[in-house]
């Protein structure tokens, strides 16, 4: 009895793979596999992809990986088994995505990575995104300029070991190496979390070390740090920089509270990935890498980005 049940479960689990691939319809269907759908960045990204796909007449299926690398790979396996024409992936994990990238190559389904490269990127058709290192360099260079290349810096980092954290930290280092007058007095991860950044900043302000500028690897953490700075009434003494250009950060830049942020041009990344995919499906030669430019936003140019 038990074993029959077990067999039914096993068959049910693998059933999608036994089904013959869907018959090739005239209309092309492309899947977007997002790492998750629970922050402003991923929402903006998926909205841009949807919009562009609609403009180009491509049917789009959106899958949410829910921050689970194994699940994302499973989703891609199912999509390929069901005969999808192409896949755009915003990976949960650059390492974890590798089997899916290989499978796409073997089965001849074009796969484009967006925002984050896969570790085995050579097996994907193309990468559309930004360089985290460039973004970090841009942000830190503006901060260095603002304090004249001299002063104490506090760094709020993303989750240690994440691609964005490693890249942006490398960009920071480039600028800091060029400016020996800048001292890093605090450096800690707040895991992208506003409350954690707020608490860290409050504690740092207690330590009695002078801080001239706070450079955060995303806007959520920058806004947390800003709140601590404002609570301590040190907004005149301490400049705060963020990255991502989320709406509240833009509003804070406009009000002169946040000194600056960096736009990753998320919508452009999303739109561009669809363009590259359509080219690939049409048999055109596509570049292995499409880098979307990032932009620094401060009070001078913020109006252009406020919707």
């Amino acid at each position: 009895m038990k074993s029959i049940l077990a067999k039914i479960v096993v068959v049910a689990l693998f059933f999608p793979f036994f089904v013959p691939a869907a018959s090739g319809a005239a209309e092309r269907s492309v899947a977007l596999c997002m790492s998750h759908m629970s922050n402003a960045f991923t929402i903006e990204m998926s909205d841009a992809v949807r919009k562009r796909a609609a403009e180009l007449g491509v049917t789009l299926i959106v899958n949410d990986g829910n921050k689970d690398a194994a699940r994302q790979v499973g989703q891609i396996e199912s999509l390929i088994a069901q005969g999808i024409d192409g896949i755009i992936v915003e990976a949960v994990s650059v390492d974890g995505i590798q089997p899916a990238v290989n499978l796409a190559k073997e089965t001849g389904v074009p796969l484009v990575t967006v925002n984050q490269k896969a570790t085995n990127q050579e097996n994907a058709v193309s990468f559309v995104g930004v360089s985290h290192e460039d973004g970090g360099e841009l942000e830190m260079a503006e901060a260095a300029k603002a304090i004249g290349g001299k002063g104490n810096v506090a760094l709020l980092l993303g989750p240690m070991g994440s691609d964005a954290q490693i890249g942006r930290s490398a960009g920071y280092k480039k600028v800091l190496d060029r400016n020996p007058g800048m001292q890093v007095v605090f450096e800690q991860t707040a895991n992208w979390d506003t409350e954690a950044a707020l608490r860290l900043m409050e504690n740092w302000l207690q330590a009695g070390t002078k801080i001239d500028v706070v450079v955060a690897q995303n806007d959520g953490m920058a806004l947390g740090a800003l709140k601590a700075v404002e609570d301590a009434q040190l907004q005149k003494e301490i400049k705060v920089y963020g990255l991502d250009a989320v709406p509240d950060a833009l509003a804070a830049v406009k009000d002169g509270r946040l000194t600056g942020t960096v736009s990753q041009n998320t919508s452009a990344q999303g739109a561009k990935s669809v363009d590259v995919m359509v080219d690939a499906l049409n048999g055109k030669q596509v570049p292995k890498e499409v880098i979307v430019e990032q932009m620094f936003i401060d009070k001078a140019n913020v109006a252009k980005y406020l919707k």
Binding site: S38, A40, G220
Partner: peptide, 8 residues
């Protein structure tokens, strides 16, 4: 929240 923080 629609996935992103509610600001303002």
């Amino acid at each position: 929240s629609g996935g992103s923080p509610i600001y303002n």
